[in-house]
């Protein structure tokens, strides 16, 4: 957003809202409505309202404003990106893609435009095109979320090794961001390369020696490598660390960790006990539900 636009908006809001420089969304929209009613073709005001409506999950209303903006200013890349998102959210998928194409034509180095088109292409069954867009976007900026999306798309196409190598490169560009480490380990395992996964896990443990989840993960990697005795030792080590942490500070997350370690050690009943205690305290904790699903599956398998 250009500063002049913001100044204009804030002047309007200053008159409409005496109390606050950051009024609630509804007040902001009311102020914009009033301003636009007197200046119906003000591109900047329409852009602001369109953006706000889209963020408030009102894409159809946003689309009305954005279409006026684009009629007045057809080459506005930001408006084209917003229009693409609004069209997609209202079910006009092909039109959304066309808007994103146009945005990239106008602004080929717009990270937002590239990422938006990647999302659209992936949703419309063109993962290859989505990956191309993400590659271009990631050449502009190191975005962890985009690296993860790229890897997911590659894995879905069974290009697992490519995904793993891409994540390895992303690790270097992102200071070994934790989400990328976890994704990379998982991908190396899927690629049948537990030794490479193990190297990553060991490196992560050096960086975060107090995280018992990494020790459990190490056990998982060793299991996949067929080194079951070492895996059992890792799980036991993790359990000891968790119990020590629990003695200092009893948290639901640690109880889930405990259940996780116990389950891997085959102590299913104890694992269920730890999990039940965790769920009693925090019924909406996603990791607890994931473990419950796994334990339920294990029970069913027996």
């Amino acid at each position: 957003m250009r500063p002049s636009l913001v100044c204009l908006l804030l002047v309007l809001l200053a008159w409409s809202s005496a109390a606050s420089a950051d009024p609630p969304v509804e007040q902001t929209l009311e102020a914009l409505d009033r301003a636009i009613s007197s200046r119906p073709y003000d591109v900047e005001l329409l852009m602001v309202r369109g953006d706000l409506l889209l963020r408030e999950e009102r894409p159809a209303d946003a689309l009305s404003d954005l279409r006026v903006v684009l009629a007045l200013s057809p080459g506005d890349a930001r408006a084209l990106v917003l229009e693409a998102r609004a069209l997609f959210q209202t079910g006009h998928e092909e039109a959304a893609l066309a808007s994103a194409d146009r945005a990239i034509e106008v602004a080929p180095t717009s990270f937002d435009a590239l990422r938006t088109r990647a999302t659209l292409r992936a949703a419309l069954g063109d993962p290859g095109g989505a990956i191309e867009d993400l590659d271009t976007a990631l050449a502009l900026a190191d975005d962890v979320e985009s690296y993860l999306t790229r890897a997911r798309l590659l894995r879905a196409q069974r290009r697992t090794l490519e995904a793993a190598h891409g994540l390895e490169a992303a690790l270097l560009a992102s200071d070994h961001a934790a989400p990328l480490v976890l994704a990379c380990v998982d991908t190396w395992l899927e690629a049948g390369e537990p030794v490479r996964a193990l190297a990553l896990v060991d490196q992560a443990i050096v960086s975060a020696p107090t995280d018992p989840r990494l020790v459990i993960l190490r056990g998982d990697v060793l299991t996949r490598a067929g080194r079951t005795t070492e895996a059992a030792l890792a799980y036991s080590d993790a359990l000891a660390r968790i119990d020590s942490a629990l003695a200092r500070r009893s948290t639901v997350a640690r109880l889930v960790d405990r259940g996780d370690a116990l389950a891997r050690l085959g102590r299913t009943a104890e694992a269920e006990g730890a999990l039940a205690a965790a769920l009693a305290r925090e019924p909406e904790y996603e990791r607890a539900h994931a473990l419950a699903a796994r334990l339920g599956h294990a029970r069913g398998a027996r």
């Binding site: 990270f111 502009l140 992102s174 200071d175 961001a177 934790a178 960086s207």
Partner: peptide, 27 residues
């Protein structure tokens, strides 16, 4: 925040690598 550009990101130098404690966020 996607590109970590603009006045906010120019003003501040924040840890992406866990060097101030915690684990690396990469951003």
């Amino acid at each position: 925040s996607a590109t970590e550009t603009g006045p906010y990101y120019e003003a501040y130098s924040l840890p992406t690598d866990g060097a101030a404690g915690g684990v690396a966020s990469g951003t």
